[in-house]
C-alpha cells in the first residue's frame, strides 16, 4: 500500500506541475475589456484645472460681478466679507511676513495667506460649491467669484478680468513656502 501511495503521490505531483504551468498562463498585453472613450464624454466630466492653466474653460469674470454672486450664494457660510465664517475663512493676508502657521495654529488658512495656486480656487469652486447646489455655477460665475476672492485678498486689482489667460498668471504669496514631501525615509525620525 505504501509503495502504491508513493507512486500515486509522484504521479499527482507530475500532473500538477504540468497543468500548473498551463493554468498560470502569461497575462495578455491587453485584455480588451472596456470600450474607447469618446472626446465628448471626456469633455463632459474633464473639469480639472492645473496650476499652469491647463483645463481652464472659456469665459470671464470680474470682482464686481463676483461680489453679487458671493452675497447671494456664499456669504451665508463664509461670512459677509469672507472673514466671518462659520465655515472656512477665505479672506485675510495676515501675517504679512513669513509663514508662521506652525508657531500659531490658530491662524486661519485663507486663500490670501495659505493657498499656493490661484487656479485651485477656480477648480474647487466649480466642482464643489455651493454645497447646496454643487456644480451649478456657470464658468463665467466661477471666474467672477474667483476674481472677487482674489481681489478681497488684495491679490488682483479691483477691475482685473479673470479668464483663461489671466488667472494662471496670478502669483499667490504662499506659493514660495510650499515644498513637496521631504521626510527622510524611516527608520530616521520623521517630522
Amino acid at each position: 500500500m505504501r509503495r502504491t501511495a508513493t507512486l500515486w503521490g509522484a504521479t499527482i505531483s507530475v500532473t500538477v506541475a504540468v497543468t500548473g504551468a498551463a493554468l498560470f498562463a502569461q497575462a495578455p498585453a491587453r485584455f480588451g475589456f472596456g470600450r474607447p472613450a469618446t472626446p465628448q464624454e471626456i469633455a463632459a466630466i474633464d473639469i480639472d484645472v492645473m496650476p499652469d492653466g491647463r483645463g481652464l474653460p472659456p469665459g470671464r469674470g470680474t470682482s464686481a460681478e463676483g461680489a453679487v454672486i458671493y452675497a447671494a450664494k456664499c456669504a451665508q457660510c463664509h461670512g459677509k466679507t469672507g472673514t466671518e465664517g462659520p465655515n472656512d475663512i477665505l479672506v485675510g493676508r495676515e501675517p504679512r511676513t513669513g509663514f508662521q502657521f506652525a508657531q500659531n495654529p490658530k491662524l486661519p488658512h485663507t486663500i490670501g495667506n495659505y493657498w499656493p495656486y490661484a487656479t485651485t480656487v477656480f477648480d474647487y469652486v466649480r466642482r464643489a460649491m455651493p454645497p447646496t447646489a454643487p456644480g451649478s455655477l456657470t464658468d463665467d460665475e466661477v471666474y467672477a467669484l474667483t476674481a472677487f476672492l482674489l481681489h478681497a485678498n488684495e491679490l488682483i486689482a479691483v477691475d482685473a478680468v479673470m479668464d483663461q489667460s489671466t488667472l494662471a498668471r496670478v502669483v499667490m504669496p504662499a506659493r514660495q513656502y510650499f515644498v513637496p514631501e521631504s521626510r527622510p525615509a524611516p527608520p530616521k525620525p520623521r517630522p
Binding site: 480639472d48 496650476p51 513669513g98 499656493p116 487656479t119 513656502y177 510650499f178
Partner: peptide, 27 residues
Amino acid sequence: SDAPFMTREETSKYTEPFANGTARMFS
C-alpha cells in the same frame, strides 16, 4: 498627466506647516 494637479485637498488641506516657515505637500 505630467505634473500634480494641486487640488484643494493637497494644498489648502492635508498639508503640514513647519516651524521653519514651510508647508509640506504630498506626505
